[in-house]
Every structure is written in C-alpha cells, then in structure tokens.
Design a protein around this nucleic acid. Structure first.
Length: 422
RNA sequence: GGAGGCUUCGCCUAGUCCGGUCUAUGGCGCCGCACUGCUAAUGCGGUUUGGGUCUCAAGCCCAUCGAGGGUUCAAAUCCCUCAGCCUCCGCCA
C-alpha cells in the first residue's frame, strides 16, 4: 500500500512507476478521486455525529418536557447519521480497494522493461568446461538417480506432476543445507524461525500475494486458508498490527518452511527434474528496518546470499530485475542466478526484494521512535531454496563417474566429502 | 466436537448486573518539569491508535473498550453472530 500523502503530493511519481511496471497509470487518478470522496463523506458524517453527541448530552440533562422537544430533532438526526455513516464506509472501502490495487513505487535506477530486460551486475566463479575435462555433464535428474538422491517417478505416482521424493543422500543433503544456512543466518544475528505454511487471508493479502500472483497460490476453500509460497508471508505477518521499538531495528528473522506453488501458466516450462516443483523447503531471510536504512539492508541481504553461494562454490551472477518483472510489493529486486551446466545458462536460485513500506502499511507494522509512530520497511531474501541449490550442486560438482564432490563448507553438516553412485 | 469462563488506551486493573454524570478509574512503566550535595524519595504535568481540519504547529472534530451486526434520541454497558485465549469433557497424532 502506498502512502496517500505521496500520492496526493506527487501523483506523477506514482503514474511513472505504474508505467514502468507496465501497469495502468490511470489507477492513480481513480485512487485520488476515491480518496477525495472518502474525505468529503467522512467530514459530512463527522459534522452530523458531532451534533448528535451534543444533543445527546442535552437530552440526558433535560427535564421531561424539554426532552420531548429535543427528541424530535434527534430522531431525524439519527437517520441522517446512519445514512452518512453508510456512505462514509462505502467510500472508505472503495478507496481502500483501489489503493490496494496499486503496486509499490519502483525505486529509481531499476531497469525499464520486462522479464528479459534485467541488467547483469556481477559474475562470480567460472563455469566448468566439461569438454576440456573430457566428459559430458549429466543433468541433475540423471545424477540424482545414480546417487539414489531423487525419485521423480514415484513423486509423480503419488503426488502427480512436479512432485518428487528426496531419498537417501538427497534427503540428507537438504538437511545439511538447512543447517548450513541457519548457521550462517544466526552468525549475522537472525532469529531462526520455523513458520506456519498455512495462513489466513489477511496475511496473504497483506504480503501482496493475492493480486496478480493469486493464481499461483493454493487456497483451501473449506477453511479459507492459504498455503504459503514462501515463509516471507508468515514472517512479514509475524508482527502484523504491532508497533516495534525503533531502537531494536533492524529485526531479522530466518524462516524455514515448506513452500507451495501452483505454477499456473508455466505448463511445459522446466518439466524435467526439480527446477520447478509444487512443494519445496526454503530458508528465507526477512528484515524489518527503518525506511531510510532499507536500501543498505537490501545490499546486506544480497551480500549474505552471495556469501552462501560462494560457500557452496557455485558459479553465479547477480541481476537487477527490470520494473515489469518485480512483484507488486517490491520496489527493487536482485536475483542471484547459478550456472546450470546442462542448460548452458544461469537460473534463478535466490531473490531479494526491498518492499519499502508497502507491506508494512498493509499489515499495519509500525515503528515507534521519540518523534512518533510511522510505518517501517520490510525486506526479504532467499538464503537457500532446496531443490534449485541441490540441482546446482549436483550438476556443478559432478565427476566423470557420476560422483559429486561435496563443497567444503557443507562437509561438517553432511559428514562426507564425496557422494557416490549407489 | 460439547460445556463454562475471559478479552478495556504498553502491562495490570475499575466500570458491564441497573444505558446518559465514561471526556474510560487507579497502579506500574515511560517522558517532561520542580525540589534536592549525588542517587533515591516526593510533587506537578503528560503518555492508545487511526482519520480529518489546518501553510506548519497548536487547537479542534470524528472513530476506537477482541471483530462485525442489531436495539435506542443515546451503547464499554442490552441483544445476536464470529474470533482468540483459559478450564473441563470427548476423540486423535
């Protein structure tokens, strides 16, 4: 949700932001018109209600005869107040509904355009040259089968398309990655959290996932609960309706949870393997901080993502995601993409977003400092999304016989330095 | 799933039976001021949140007693629905 004051004072900025995203700039003017109506109908109600309360006091003190006279005016006033209240509520709801449809203001400097208009900021590590090494790289599906780490056939049998079992060393690998990620997060002051995957509509809507992203969200109609696509949702909503002391910011949480995605509209994309699945586990970083500190915090989150990928010795690059490919909550987003040898390209493994005050306004998370109360900023970043990291490790660290070298940092958590075919 | 109890402005709490004097009591905490070798103590004042009005501030207005609806000229207070927490019973990992 955008600050109405900014919208009133600088509507051009909001229109430009909408245009950059490829969304409708006219929505800004609809919101402003609705807000105008909201304020005028509220003033009307306030005035009537003020009169009603004043007369109410007179009635209480009046003698019997006076009372009858007062009640004449007061009875018709009651009807007017009721009507004005209804009008006010309707106007407020409509203004709010329109305001919720507006995406966050894009941060200055974000590349223009859509999905393919990202800007590459950095490259780290060098992809291996398997031809020079004298063998052809196997893809993660094949390696996973050789190691007894991934069972896709039975995943499909039991759960349908895009479902999988991690088995044997595959399962252990995920647990080791989780521990490595959590250890790093704790080192930097994050509070480890295991979060609910099932949340109420307020949490889902407040985080901004029931807009254009809604088609990718699982909804349990019988209970009106949603399955989260990321622990960003329960972490953002953790402090819903709360006022946090400014001197305790930033507050950082690392959430581990299952993530569920319908993957609507991605038919035919990544149908092989576990690059794109309906359920996976993820360690997610989340930060509540002062708005003026958000850009710096965003860089810190990106830094911790890079540190994790470095520790796993993966070649990757960092991209600045274009305006048209940002989620509605994000003002800016950086993705880290790991090199996938058998695809010959970089694929997203982590993503960090600065949501500025957008989510905090919707969720009513505020900060208290001496000068008062105001919304704070929220940011999120992937630390370790299991399937894609497993894909990257298996493919990048494979040997000619199908074995996989375990990155040094992971060895204490896995207990072995080589995964061998079974 | 069934029965009962509870939910008040940071925390605790009065008020709810019997509607208007609630502009919500008191304590704790916190902030400011005064007094005082220092600290402590004491005294005085302030201290929910959101919206509006206003050039800004002050001031003023409206809403807010778990949420929503109803009765009434008038609701923290009466009625209905729902949620959360607690206790007990039943079932179950």
């Amino acid at each position: 949700m955008i600050d109405l004051r900014i919208l009133r004072e600088d509507p051009d900025r909001a229109r430009a932001s909408q245009r950059a995203r490829g969304e409708d700039p006219a929505l800004v003017d609809q919101v402003l018109a609705a807000d105008e109506l909201r304020r005028s109908s509220a003033m009307h109600f306030d005035a009537l209600r003020n009169e009603q309360r004043g007369l109410g006091k007179q009635v209480a003190q009046a003698s019997k005869d006076e009372k009858e006279a007062l009640l004449v005016r007061t009875r018709e006033l009651a009807a007017e107040v009721k009507a004005a209240d209804a009008a006010q509520n309707e106007a407020a709801q409509e203004a709010h509904r329109l305001l919720l449809g507006l995406s966050n203001l894009v941060e200055p400097g974000v590349p223009e355009g859509g999905e393919d208009d990202y800007v590459v900021l950095e490259e780290h590590g060098r992809p291996r040259d398997f031809a020079t090494e004298g063998f052809e790289a196997r893809d993660h599906v094949e390696i996973g089968r050789l190691l007894g780490a991934i069972d896709l056939e039975r995943g499909a049998k039991v759960g349908g398309a895009r479902q999988y079992y991690l088995t044997g060393v595959g399962a252990l690998l995920e647990l080791a990655l989780c521990n490595l990620a959590m250890a790093q997060a704790v080192r930097y002051g994050f509070t480890p959290m295991i979060t609910p995957s099932l949340v109420k509509p307020e949490a889902m809507a407040g985080t901004g996932f029931l807009g254009q992203a809604a088609e990718n969200v699982y909804h349990l109609a019988d209970d009106d609960l949603y399955l989260v696509g990321t622990s960003e949702v329960p972490l953002a909503a953790y402090h819903m309706d709360e006022i946090l002391p400014a001197d305790r910011l930033p507050m950082r949480y690392a959430g581990y949870s299952s993530c569920y995605r319908r993957e609507a509209g991605s038919y035919g994309k990544d149908t092989r393997g576990i690059i794109r699945v309906h359920q996976f586990e993820k360690v997610e970083m989340f930060s509540f901080c002062a708005p003026e500190d958000a850009a710096a915090e965003h860089q810190r989150l990106l830094g911790w993502e890079k540190e994790f990928l470095d520790a796993l010795e993966l070649p990757y690059r960092v991209i600045d995601v274009a305006a048209g490919d940002l989620g509605s909550s994000a003002a800016r987003k950086y993705d880290c993409e790991a090199w996938i040898p058998t695809q010959g390209k970089y694929r997203e493994v982590t993503s960090t977003s600065n949501c500025t005050e957008f989510q905090a306004r919707r969720l009513a998370v505020r900060m208290r400092e001496e000068s008062g109360v105001r919304p704070l900023a929220t940011l999120n970043g992937t630390l370790c999304a299991m399937p894609r990291i497993i894909v990257a490790i298996l493919e990048n660290h494979q040997l000619a016989d199908g074995s996989v070298t375990v990155p040094e940092a992971l060895r204490p958590y896995l207990g072995v330095d080589l995964l061998k075919p079974v």
